[in-house]
């Protein structure tokens, strides 16, 4: 499935809470995929990931995740990343309802 457009977000798990988190435009971390920075350039993605990996006192296991933009907004392309953004299916208190 060739990506016509290069669209990625930077995601990781928060070191203290372990919860899924996404990097924003101003290099902060949020829990909602919808608020993540959408990166359209490979070099920018590389630089952003390097920055995320340097923040080892904030996040763990940062990686680039493919996303697509459509009328539903921002959604992850791989089903694993979709589940990560939605939370487990069997817990009624929803996505990381803390």
């Amino acid at each position: 499935m060739k990506l016509n457009q290069f669209l990625k977000v930077i995601t990781a798990n928060n070191l203290r809470s372990g919860l899924v988190t996404y990097m924003t435009d101003n290099y902060e971390w949020v829990s909602n995929l919808g608020d993540a920075a959408v990166i359209t350039d490979a070099d920018l993605a590389k630089a952003g990931l390097a920055f995320a990996e340097s923040q080892s006192d904030v996040v763990v296991g940062a990686y680039l995740s493919d996303v697509k933009q459509d009328e539903l907004g921002l959604t992850a392309i791989h089903f694993r990343d979709k589940f990560r953004s939605q939370g487990p299916a069997n817990v009624t208190n929803g996505k990381q309802g803390i």
Binding site: N13, S17, G18, L19, V20, V60, G61, R80, F83, R84, G87, P88, Q96
Partner: peptide, 9 residues
């Protein structure tokens, strides 16, 4: 005994 799983520890 502490793992880091998909959504949390």
């Amino acid at each position: 005994g502490l793992y880091l799983q998909l959504h949390a520890y």
